[in-house]
Nucleic acid binder design. Structure first.
Length: 649
RNA sequence: GCCGGAGUAGCUCAGGGGUAGAGCGCAUCCUUGGUAAGGAUGAGGUCACGAGUUCAAUUCUCGUCUUCGGCUCCA
C-alpha cells in the first residue's frame, strides 16, 4: 500500500501502482467523470500513469487551467492526427495550448496548402477519431531512437527539438495511428473530446524567429460538451460587437483614410471631444501632483536623436529624416518626446531645490510600424502620448515612482478598469547589445522599480528582455474584447538619457550632480487607451466622459424653439447637449438616440414648454419622470461630480 | 516585413463572363406626433487601382494598394 496525500492534507491508502482515475473514482463519481489530469508531487502527469510511491496529488478538471490545458493539448494531437491523414508527409513543429484553445505549427508537403475551406473536413475527421476513444499511451524512448524515428519521417523540426532534449527525459504519446513527441500529460483517451472548432489559420515563423522558415499554424478550440462550444461561439460574436473599430465607426469617433495614409487616425468631432475630456481629467490630476505642461515641436534635428540613442537604435526602422533645402540639415519626426524635454530641462540651470521637475505634454509622436502590425487605434503610426518626464534627485526617485503608480490607479479607478496585469520589464542579461548605458546604471534602475513595486504591494509579473533600450519599466496591461493584451500605462526609470544629455543640477554641496529621469504615460497613448476604453464600455462611456451627455427630443416641430432654449441653458451649464429636431415621431427619435448610447434623453412637448420642464429618460432604463430644467442641470452635474469625487481635488 | 483571407452605394451585405441588387442611411414631399422603427417618391456605384486573357471582365489571371486574422516587431 502507498499513501496519497490530497490537497486538503488528508491522507488515503491505495494499492501500489494506483492511477489518477482510480483515485478520482474512490473520491466521488462526479470527480471521476470530470477529472482530466493529475499533479503528482507538483508535476503534471497522465491520469493513467501508475503511481508507485507515496505522493501528494492534486486532481484537475475543466474548471482549472491545468485540466483545460491537458484537454487542449490532447486536442492538438488529435488535430495533428487528422492533418496527417489528409496531408501525409506533413512535418510537425510544436502544438501548444493558448488562452482560448490550442494550435499546431505544421510544415505541409511541397505544393500543398491548407485553407479554411479544409476546416470542415478536418473537424469531421477529428470528431471521428475522437469517437473511436483511442487510448493515448505514453512511452519513454532513448534520444537515439527518437532521432532515428523522426529521421525516418523526414521530420527535421522534431529532430531539432529532440536534439535539445536530455536523454532519459524523452517521451512519446501514441493514439491510433499517430505518434508524437511530447512531454505530456494527456487525456486517457480521445473520447473526452466532444466538440471541435478550428478557428483560424496563420503563418508563424519556426521557433518565433523571423529568420526561420514560415510554417502554417492552425488554431482550434475543443470542449467536453457541445453546449460549451455553442456558448463560446456566442461569446465570440458578442466580443466582436464590442470591437472598437466597429463601435468607433458607429459612433462617429474616428476614421481612417487611404488618402491620408495607413495607420494615421483621423479623429472626428465626437472622438475629439472624448479625448479632450480625458485630457482635462488627467491634467487636473497632474496639477495636483505638481506637473507643469509644456509644448514641443513635432520634429527635431536628427542630431538630437543621435544624442539620445534613438537614431542608432531605430533610425533604419523609422520615418526617414526630412531634409531642408540647405544642405546637411536633417530633421526627424519625433518618435518620443523625451529628447525635447531634456532640452527644456537644460534651458536653465537647476538647483537641487528645483527638483523634482515634472514636465508633462500630450505629445504626438510618429513611428514607422510594420504594415502588418497596424490595428485600429491600438497600433498606429501617429499617436499622442500623455507623456511626462520627471527629473529628480536619486534620493527622490522611489517616492516619485510610487506617486506615478498612484496616478495610474486613479485613472484605472475612474474608468473601472479592474482586470489589469502589472509587468516589470527588465533587460535581457544575455543581450547587452540591445541596451545603452552601464550595467551599474541598469542595476540601480531595476532595483528602484522592483523596490517601489514591493513597497506599493503590487502583484507584478517580471519579464526579462522587455525593457526599453534606455531603461527598465513597469507596464500596465489590459485586455481587449477578444482577450488580446495591450500595454497601456508605462513608467520607466532612466539613468542613461541624463548622462547622454549631460543633465545636471547643483547640489547642496555646491557640486554638479546628475538627475534621474522617470518617463511615464499613464494612459500610454490616447489612441490605444480610447480603443481599450471603447471595448470595455461597449461605447457606453461614463457620463463625465461621454461626448454627448444629453439629447433633447422635441415631440414635434412646434417645440423646437423650446428645445433650443433648454439646449442653450444646459450647454451654458457645461452639460454637453444636442437636439434631435428631425421630422420624426417621438418613438423613432427615442429609438435612434438610445442606440447612439446618449445617457440622457430629454423629451419636450406642450406640457414641458408650458412648465419649463423636461421629461427625462435614462439610456437603457426608460422614463424617469419630469424635472424642472434647472433641477435637471443640477442633477446631472451632481452625477458627474459624484463619479469623479475623491479622484482628485 | 512574412503567411493566409477579404475589397460591390455613406454603412451592413447579396450577386455573378453580356446595361448592378437589398436593407439601413441620405434628399424631397405628405404627416405634427407623448416614451424603442409613420408613409410616398427619389438621388447615389469606373463593382479598390493597374495590366493581361476574351467578341465582351465588376466576375477569370497576375501585380499594386488597403483591410482582416496570425507571426515577427513595438522607443
Amino acid at each position: 500500500m502507498i499513501q496519497i496525500t490530497l490537497p486538503d492534507k488528508s491522507v488515503r491508502e491505495y494499492p501500489e501502482a494506483v492511477n489518477g482515475i482510480e483515485i478520482a473514482k474512490s473520491i466521488s463519481h462526479g470527480l471521476a467523470k470530470n477529472v482530466l489530469s493529475i499533479e503528482v508531487n507538483g508535476q503534471a502527469w497522465d491520469l493513467t500513469r501508475k503511481i508507485t510511491k507515496d505522493a501528494s496529488i492534486k486532481l484537475h478538471t475543466w474548471e482549472d487551467n491545468i485540466g483545460k490545458e491537458t484537454f487542449w493539448h490532447s486536442s492538438a494531437h488529435l488535430l495533428a492526427e487528422a492533418i496527417e491523414f489528409f496531408f501525409p508527409g506533413t512535418k510537425f513543429g510544436i502544438g501548444p495550448t493558448v488562452d482560448n484553445g490550442f494550435y499546431y505549427d505544421i510544415d505541409l508537403p511541397e505544393g500543398k496548402v491548407i485553407s479554411e475551406k479544409d476546416f470542415q473536413k478536418i473537424e469531421k475527421k477529428m470528431l471521428e477519431l475522437a469517437r473511436q476513444k483511442n487510448n493515448i499511451v505514453r512511452s519513454e524512448i532513448s534520444k537515439v531512437d527518437a532521432l532515428t524515428m523522426f529521421a525516418e519521417k523526414n521530420d527535421e523540426l522534431k529532430q531539432e527539438l529532440i536534439g535539445e532534449l536530455e536523454d532519459g527525459t524523452i517521451s512519446l504519446y501514441n493514439q491510433g495511428n499517430f505518434t508524437d513527441l511530447c512531454r505530456g500529460p494527456h487525456l486517457p483517451n480521445t473520447g473526452y473530446i466532444k466538440a471541435i472548432k478550428l478557428t483560424a489559420i496563420a503563418g508563424a515563423y519556426w521557433r518565433g524567429d523571423e529568420k526561420n522558415k514560415m510554417l502554417t499554424r492552425v488554431y482550434g478550440i475543443t470542449f467536453p460538451k457541445q453546449k460549451m462550444l455553442e456558448e463560446y461561439l456566442v461569446m465570440l460574436e458578442e466580443a466582436k460587437k464590442r470591437d472598437h473599430r466597429k463601435i468607433g465607426k458607429e459612433m462617429d469617433l474616428f476614421t481612417f483614410s487611404e488618402a491620408v495614409g495607413q495607420g494615421l487616425p483621423l479623429w472626428l468631432p465626437k472622438g475629439a471631444q472624448l479625448r479632450e475630456q480625458l485630457e482635462i481629467f488627467l491634467k487636473k490630476v497632474q496639477k495636483k501632483y505638481g506637473y507643469d505642461q509644456v509644448i514641443t515641436p513635432h520634429i527635431g534635428d536628427v542630431n538630437l536623436y543621435k544624442t539620445s540613442g534613438h537614431y542608432e537604435k531605430y533610425g533604419k526602422d523609422s520615418f526617414q529624416p526630412i531634409s531642408t533645402p540647405a544642405e546637411g540639415e536633417e530633421y526627424l519626426l519625433k518618435p518620443m518626446n523625451c529628447p525635447h524635454h531634456c532640452e527644456i530641462y537644460k534651458s536653465r540651470p537647476k538647483s537641487y531645490k528645483d527638483l523634482p521637475v515634472r514636465m508633462a505634454e500630450f505629445g504626438t509622436v510618429y513611428r514607422y510600424e510594420q504594415s502588418g502590425e497596424l490595428h485600429g487605434l491600438t497600433r498606429v503610426r501617429s499617436f499622442t502620448q500623455d507623456d511626462a518626464h520627471i527629473f529628480c534627485r536619486p534620493d527622490q526617485l522611489k517616492d516619485e515612482f510610487k506617486k506615478v503608480i498612484d496616478i495610474v490607479f486613479i485613472i484605472f479607478k475612474a474608468l473601472s478598469f479592474e482586470n489589469y496585469v502589472t509587468q516589470i520589464s527588465l533587460r535581457d542579461p544575455e543581450k547587452p547589445e540591445k541596451y545603452i548605458g552601464s550595467p551599474e546604471n541598469w542595476d540601480k534602475a531595476e532595483k528602484a522599480i522592483v523596490e517601489a513595486c514591493e513597497e506599493k504591494g503590487l502583484n507584478t509579473i517580471t519579464e526579462l528582455g522587455e525593457a526599453a533600450f534606455y531603461g527598465p519599466k513597469l507596464d500596465f496591461m489590459i485586455k481587449d474584447a477578444l482577450g488580446r493584451s495591450w500595454q497601456l500605462g508605462t513608467i520607466q526609470v532612466d539613468y542613461n538619457l541624463p548622462e547622454r544629455f549631460k543633465l545636471e543640477y547643483i547640489g547642496a554641496d555646491d557640486n554638479r550632480h546628475q538627475p534621474v529621469m522617470i518617463h511615464r504615460a499613464p494612459f500610454g497613448s490616447m489612441e490605444r487607451f480610447v480603443a481599450v476604453l471603447i471595448e470595455h464600455t461597449a461605447g457606453k462611456f461614463p457620463l463625465w466622459l461621454t461626448p454627448e451627455q444629453a439629447v433633447i427630443l422635441p415631440i414635434s416641430e412646434k417645440y423646437n424653439d423650446y428645445a433650443k432654449k433648454v439646449s442653450d441653458f444646459l450647454n451654458i451649464s457645461d452639460i454637453r447637449t444636442v437636439i434631435d429636431d428631425r421630422n420624426e415621431k417621438i418613438g423613432r427619435k427615442i429609438r435612434d438616440n438610445e442606440l447612439k448610447r446618449i445617457p440622457y434623453l430629454l423629451i419636450v412637448g406642450e406640457k414641458e414648454a408650458e412648465t419649463e420642464t423636461v421629461s427625462v429618460r435614462r439610456q437603457g432604463e426608460g422614463d424617469k419622470g419630469v424635472m424642472e430644467k434647472s433641477a435637471f442641470a443640477n442633477f446631472i452635474l451632481k452625477e458627474v461630480k459624484d463619479q469623479l469625487s475623491g479622484l482628485y481635488n
